[in-house]
């Protein structure tokens, strides 16, 4: 029983990280019809930005200050690379969705190569405060603190995004643009600025997710291909939730996170198949698509 609760919280934390990645992907796709393959590289870059700052700040700001700076660096790093990507690579290709996808594929290839060249294929350990990697005892339970941090970050971002979309002018433009981009332009609104904004938001969430994944699920380590692995699960979350639906990605992220850890723990590790949890998620995707090709909350096309 006690492991069940710990496993469940771990699954929810994983779902929170997936949501951070998938929300950006889903918004970008919904508004711009762009599948951002480079999102995986954004994740990794975010984690490396965190590593860079954390390892240079040792002792300067105290443990908590260092941790805050690490998180800020990862988020800002993801946002910055997303901004540059949108302005330099995506914007010149407006109206050519396939080329936009291909250019992000090339960017992912190039960025991962660059990271491999700069940092080598060995993992780097990101300095973190001791409490992050320890556990909290609740009765007989030993619950990792990192899980709660990831879960908290997911909830904060979800609330922030919901508020932004509901109550701000740009949120209104984005919601309208997801529905009918052309008509937004026909009201005299420069939808290109919303594109850039959505990319930056997605990049920031991805940078944060990359760092959290390293802390919580990767033993504090980051390596150049980590983001691409994570991205594939985020894609699965986006398709299961329904392309372009933020609420759909919330539900799907939780579902995928839980299925993955339950199957991985209860079926996989008992049979010596460490990757069974990962495989089960793909089966889940196949099942959902048979029942609802548009995803849980998407509209079938």
């Amino acid at each position: 029983m006690s492991t069940f609760i710990a496993i469940t919280i771990s699954g929810l934390a994983l779902g929170a990280v997936y949501f951070l990645v998938a929300s950006g992907l889903s918004l970008i796709y919904g508004l711009m019809d762009v599948l951002n393959f480079a999102h995986g590289a954004f994740l990794t870059l975010g984690a490396y930005a965190g590593w860079e700052v954390a390892s240079h700040l040792t002792g300067a700001l105290g443990t908590e200050g260092q941790f805050a700076a690490t998180i800020a660096a990862a988020t800002a790093g993801g946002a910055f690379v997303a901004l540059v990507t949108e302005v330099l690579l995506i914007r010149p290709l407006y109206g050519r969705p396939i080329s936009q996808i291909l250019v992000t594929v090339g960017l992912d290839l190039a960025l991962v190569g660059l990271l491999l060249g700069a940092f080598g294929s060995n993992s780097r350990a990101i300095p973190a405060p001791a409490w992050l990697t320890s556990v909290t005892r609740v009765g007989a339970e030993r619950l990792p603190n990192g899980d709660f941090v990831a879960l908290g970050a997911g909830i904060v971002v979800l609330c922030g995004l919901t508020w932004f979309l509901r109550y701000t002018r740009y949120g209104l433009v984005i919601r309208a643009g997801v529905e009918n981009r052309e008509m937004v332009q026909a009201l005299g609104i420069d939808v290109g600025r919303a594109f850039t904004l959505v990319f930056v938001i997605g990049g920031a969430a991805a940078g944060l997710a990359g760092l959290l994944y390293s802390f919580v699920f990767s033993g504090g380590l980051v390596d150049p291909t980590q983001g691409d692995q994570l991205l594939i699960f985020a894609f699965i979350v986006v398709v299961i939730g329904g392309l372009g639906s933020l609420n759909g990605s919330v539900i799907a992220a939780i579902l995928v996170g839980l299925v993955q850890v339950y199957v991985g723990f209860y079926l996989g590790s008992h049979n010596g198949l460490a990757e069974l949890g990962n495989v089960s998620v793909v089966l889940l995707l196949a099942v959902v698509l048979q029942a609802r090709p548009g995803g849980l909350l998407g509209t079938p096309t």
């Binding site: 002018r169 209104l172 309208a176 008509m183 332009q185 026909a186 939808v191």
Partner: peptide
């Protein structure tokens, strides 16, 4: 398009194209 509209053009499209997922008030605010 948005620059053309800002010259002072109003467009009422064939299928109305109001934003179905937004409230009436939000449609106007937009």
């Amino acid at each position: 398009t948005h620059r053309i509209i800002r010259l002072g053009v109003g467009y009422v499209p064939e299928d109305r194209d109001v934003f179905a997922g937004l409230t009436v008030r939000e449609n106007l605010r937009l």
